[in-house]
């Protein structure tokens, strides 16, 4: 099983580590465990893991410190943060620092597996395709004024004060066999860093998409609802998904990255 992905699970609680391991091992992944950031860093030095799943809150070296250290050594490593204290600000900041994604506790094995699958897809994209090609894939010129949760979603402040929200092209590419989108209801409240909609693949797996802003959903792009291919064709333009009335956009902008600096 040469192709077997190597995954390191980092959590200061043994049961959590074991549970995650037992959820992933049947899927054919090679799962290692570490009970602290320091141990994880050491193990990562010995084995080049494909994915690291790390708890944010740990005594000693925190998940965030681990992320920084690991990313410094290997930019291509995929790090997923899990947290029992889902401070969205911390989680989004982690993504901004280079984490692939995060998962709030408690979660079902399916959620984790979906995420791992997307993470590995991302890894594959890193390895198999050059960044140049990546850029070329952008079918539309880079739009102005877009702010992102890197690899997830984008937000753009419109003239009327509302924010247009869309999906990041990279995210779509990590979801194998994108099928449809499960939209929220109009008027529903969303928060930055929390699920604003679900991306559904052909196998029926649900993938969370984190909202880049907090606010209330004013409207949904009905054109996309009718034809999901629009999202693939023009993710930063006509393929927008939600129109949100933001609550504190200025403040939340700090947690986002301008599109071109990603």
């Amino acid at each position: 099983m040469e192709n077997k992905a190597k995954i390191l699970v980092v959590d200061d609680e043994v049961p959590v580590c074991r549970s995650i391991s037992s959820a992933l091992e049947p899927e054919g992944y090679l799962v290692d465990q570490a009970l602290s950031g320091e141990e994880a860093l050491q193990k990562e030095g010995e084995n080049r893991y494909d994915v690291i799943i790390a708890d944010l809150m740990m005594p000693g070296m925190s998940g965030m410190d681990l992320l920084r250290a690991v990313k410094e050594k290997r930019s291509d490593i995929v790090v997923i943060m899990i947290t029992g204290y889902p401070s969205m600000k911390t989680a989004v900041q982690a993504v901004k620092l280079g984490a692939f994604d995060y998962l709030p506790k408690p979660f079902a094995p399916s959620e984790l597996r979906n995420l791992i699958s997307r993470a590995l897809e991302r890894k594959r994209i890193y390895e198999e395709k050059a960044p140049v090609e990546e850029k070329a894939m952008a079918k539309t010129p880079l739009p102005e004024g877009l702010y992102c949760i890197p690899g997830h979603s984008w937000a753009k402040l419109e003239d009327d004060g509302n924010v247009r929200v869309g999906i990041h092209e990279l995210y779509l590419r990590t979801v194998k066999n994108f099928s449809s989108i499960k939209f929220p209801d109009e008027n529903e409240k969303v928060s930055q860093g929390e699920t604003c909609l679900w991306v559904v693949d052909t196998a029926g797996n649900l993938h969370r998409l984190w909202s880049p802003v907090s606010g209330r959903v004013i409207s949904i792009n009905e054109e996309v609802e009718e034809d999901y291919s629009r999202v693939m064709e023009d993710p930063y333009g006509s393929g927008w998904l939600l129109l949100i009335k933001p609550l504190r956009f200025e403040e939340e902008l700090e947690n986002l990255l301008p599109f071109d600096k990603e």
Binding site: V16, A23, K105, P106
Partner: peptide, 23 residues
């Protein structure tokens, strides 16, 4: 908040393992 953090870890284990058993 403190309790949430502490409770979430065992909840995670329970949730994952019960799913695994169910599977």
């Amino acid at each position: 908040a403190g309790i949430a953090h502490e409770v979430n870890n065992p909840l995670t284990s329970i949730l994952i393992n019960s799913h695994l058993v169910a599977e």
